[in-house]
Design a protein around this nucleic acid. Structure first.
Lengths: 136, 136
DNA sequence: GTAGATGCAAAGTATTTGCGACAAG
DNA sequence: CTTGTCGCAAATACTTTGCATCTAC
C-alpha cells in the first residue's frame, strides 16, 4: 500500500474533517465495493452521528479528487472502491453478486487501439463481465 | 435489416397494442440511443395520449424479450437501442456526448478467455470507452 | 369474454440541496 | 476569523406501481 486515503487528501488539498477521516478509514479497510448505504452502515458503527448526506457528499468529493472510483453495475445503486496503483476491471457473478477483479493488459492495449482508430484519446473506460460459474 | 421490432414481438409472443407499435416504430427509426424521456417525446409527437408509464413498461418488456438493449452510461438515465444481429460496444465522446458504435472481435475473444480463466461462462458484458477527440 | 395493457396519480428509490449551526485551517 | 462542512429535512430525478378502465386476441 503506497499512500492512505488521508494522505491523498492532504496532497490533493482536500480538507480533512473528522467525518471524512472516518469514511476514508472505512473505505481503506474495505476490500469489497460497498454502495453508499452499506458504507453508511459501516461508518455509523464508528460514529453514529454522521449523516448519509455527508457520506454522499464525501464519496462524490473523493471521486472528483481521484481517490475513489464509482461503479454503476447493474442494479441501481452506485458502488465505490479505493483507486489503487494498479487498474483493474470486474467480473461479476450474476447469481451470487460476487465481484472478481482482474487485469488484462492485452484488452487494455486493444481499447487504446480502438479509440485511436476513431481519432480519440481514451480518458476513461469501463469493462464489466457478467458470468455464471461453470458446472464442470 | 432482418426483422422489424413488430415482427420480433409476434415471434416472441408479445402482445401488440397500438402504443407498443408506436414505440416499436420510433425505436426502429432511431439510430441513436434515446433515454426514456427522449423516447417519450418522440412517441408523443405521434400519439400525445401515451403516458410515460407505458413507455417505461414497454422498454422494460422489450428489454426482457431481448428486443432492446438497455445502457447505463455515465449520467443517470438509462438509454435504449434496438438489438441488431451484430453485437457492438460504445465509444463515448465525453465532451459532446456523441456515441460511436464499434466492434472488436479480438476484445470479445479475450473477454471470454478472461471469464474462462476464472471458471465462468460469460452471459453478458459491458465495454464503454470514454474519450476526447484528438487535436492532431 | 377475459387476461393483460393503459393512464393517471401516488409511491418508491437513489441522490442532491438549502439552511442555520459548527469546525478546520 | 472565515470559508467550507455538517446534520437535518425537504426536494429532486428517475422509475415503478395500484387501481379502475379499456383493448387485443
Amino acid at each position: 500500500m503506497s499512500e492512505t486515503i488521508e494522505q491523498k487528501c492532504i496532497s490533493k488539498g482536500v480538507k480533512l474533517t473528522e467525518q471524512r477521516k472516518i469514511i476514508a478509514k472505512v473505505m481503506s479497510t474495505s476490500d469489497d465495493h460497498p454502495d453508499v448505504d452499506e458504507l453508511y452502515n459501516r461508518v455509523s458503527k464508528i460514529d453514529a452521528k454522521i449523516s448519509i448526506a455527508t457520506v454522499y457528499r464525501t464519496v462524490k468529493l473523493f471521486e472528483e479528487a481521484g481517490i475513489l472510483a464509482k461503479h454503476e453495475f447493474k442494479g441501481g445503486k452506485a458502488r465505490y472502491e479505493e483507486i489503487s496503483e494498479s487498474h483493474h476491471d470486474h467480473l461479476i457473478d450474476v447469481k451470487t453478486g460476487e465481484i472478481i477483479e482482474f487485469v488484462d493488459d492485452e484488452i487494455e492495449k486493444l481499447q487504446k487501439k480502438v479509440a485511436d482508430k476513431y481519432g480519440y484519446d481514451l480518458v476513461d473506460h469501463k469493462l464489466e463481465l457478467y458470468g455464471v460459474k461453470k458446472k464442470s
